[in-house]
Design a protein around this nucleic acid. Structure first.
Lengths: 338, 338
DNA sequence: GTGAAAGCGCTAACAC
DNA sequence: GTGTTAGCGCTTTCAC
């Protein structure tokens, strides 16, 4: 059995209150006592029992993180960044994968596990604004992404419309006029809110440059996997719709699209430009390297953790909403300016 | 404040012992009482306090997982699979990123967080067999990978030597004779044990087919990032060493290599075949698609969780060691058989 | 079938 | 500066 405070106290010949003081870095402990206690701690290999501490304090220093899956693209990198930021702030992260299922997302928000953590970071894809009320409890939560809107919950998102519009206008600036967009909301698919906004940004970009929008150029994102990028391009090609650029709503879709374009004998960017969204590392190593819109993922990780910890510390402070900055990253999958 | 067992008992008009019985599905509770209690639970939205339960039970239903990073390749997919398997077994995973640093790996094994979990899954890269003793405590731990060997700790690994040898012989079977290998142990780099074994497999593969091994064809894996694949190819090319195939110790290295070969104007697989190791999803969408050795990652996730839970349940059962099966996945980055 | 009571290991309010 | 004590919410003997 592991050593307890009492064991340490006994060995050091002090009261166990004193040991607690030492462990918690309390101020008024004589150097001699401290030394004795520390020696005893080292000798017994004492480590505090977190369950007991949590029970007493009502805080666990655990944060919940609920994302669709760690295995692919955006969410893996986001989780990685969030875990690092949380660690630097003294928190450990308990990761759940919702697989974009409504049931699992509800469970993350309302389920029993919620009890173990001091707060939750969730990027809901299946839940929508209709479910907003379930977030309106006193338990700290920060929403990532834009599927759920509520002026009663802390929220951090990308500027999806503006960023996608900028991407679209960038392609137009390159001389493209027939720009296909992969990322349409699919009722069966995930990420509905994001789809809607990025689709809107795409259309606004066209409109801003006076280009007629052609519904045949707007493709579903399916479940946002590589394969969906493949099938979008395939259907575009088989429908015989002319296009000179592809703007995909995520880098993963873009890489699927790039793959299929090349498999069909097209040259990127000579025949078709490809633009992604997310700035995943992988995009730096495709051939050609992938031009992309960086929606601001790294900043989201920072801000989200920060927001959540603020909320934990002051539950009554005003609800926060933050949008992060985006930027365009030009690599080789889009053609040079004419 | 959240409702407690006592609150529920008061509302239901029973003793709080009875409520506990209902919550834990105890057998002898009359249907009427059960119904009353359940109604009270629902009305108050009662959820058990896990800290209290853990304190009492001495178990948290939390598992620790320590991997270098979630953001890239193998470990992101592995973590994803492990979290799913653990969830199906009723456990939640607390993820830590060690960034392959010795200090962080030690912290994962010995640090305070260890106390919060019922067991630890760790894939050490910086720790070595010299550190084996730190694992030999009574706390459940399962080692993934092969940096640390000890007959006193549960362990699950790939058949690295055999798998790499098979990959090498596959390339030879394709007609290749000048096969470069990227993945040499770099004292500064990570994954030393894996490097050594995969290097050994490569050399054995050559030897088995009577091919002389040329040290100039063996390249360092650096820190196992995409960029290290790039630099390996770059140094190969600038040294003017002839080669007709590249076998990279991971898919990420292989994708970096593929990228650089193409950037240098070489055609894969016409001029050079490229073979990876790991079977990451991304490899299905490169151009050309990436041939690879599947070391058995999915099986590792299953077995590791299973081993750890067995160990938690019976701390004194014999130490287990398992090697998983590998397979070769032929795609388009290796040339067709002559 | 249900109730009372002990105690898991810790922190903090209160004495001294 | 250090010691005593209550109690966080729960599970689990032990009675009844």
């Amino acid at each position: 059995m592991a050593a307890t405070l009492r064991d340490v106290a006994r060995l050091a010949g002090v009261s166990f209150r004193t040991v607690s003081n030492v462990v918690n870095g309390y101020q008024y402990v004589s150097d001699a006592t401290r030394a004795k206690v520390e020696a005893a701690i080292a000798q017994l290999g004492y480590q505090p029992n977190y369950s007991a501490r949590s029970l007493r304090l009502g805080r666990s220093n655990l944060l919940g993180l609920a994302v669709p899956t760690l295995s692919i693209g955006y969410f893996g990198e986001l989780a990685s960044e969030i875990i690092d930021v949380a660690r630097n702030r003294g928190y450990t992260v308990l990761t759940e994968q919702t697989n974009s299922s409504r049931e699992r997302e509800l469970d993350a928000v309302q389920g029993a596990r919620r009890q173990m953590t001091d707060g939750l970071l969730i990027n809901p894809l299946a839940l929508t604004s209709d479910d907003a009320t379930i977030f309106e409890t006193e338990r700290p939560v920060v929403l990532l992404g834009e599927n759920v809107f509520s002026h009663k919950v802390d929220h951090v998102t990308m500027q999806n419309v503006a960023a996608t519009q900028a991407g679209t206008e960038y392609l137009i600036g390159l001389g493209h006029r027939r720009i296909a967009f992969i990322g349409l909301a699919d009722p069966e698919g995930a990420s509905v809110g994001t789809s809607v906004l990025r689709t809107e940004g795409y259309r606004q970009g066209l409109a801003a440059q006076g280009i007629e929008h052609d519904p045949r150029l707007e493709l579903s994102a399916g479940s946002w996997a590589y394969e969906d990028g493949v099938s979008a391009v395939r259907s575009l090609l088989s429908a015989g719709v002319g296009f000179d650029a592809v703007f995909a709503a995520t880098d993963v879709l873009a890489m699927g699209a790039l793959h299929e374009l090349q498999a069909s004998g097209l040259d990127v960017p000579r025949d078709v430009s490809v633009l992604g969204f997310d700035d995943l590392v992988e995009g730096r190593y495709t051939t050609p390297t992938l031009s992309t819109v960086d929606g601001g993922r790294r900043q989201i990780a920072d801000i989200a953790v920060d927001m959540l910890l603020s909320r934990i510390e002051s539950p009554t402070s005003p609800v926060a909403f933050r949008e992060v900055a985006f930027s365009l990253i030009e690599r080789k999958s889009t053609r040079s300016r004419l």
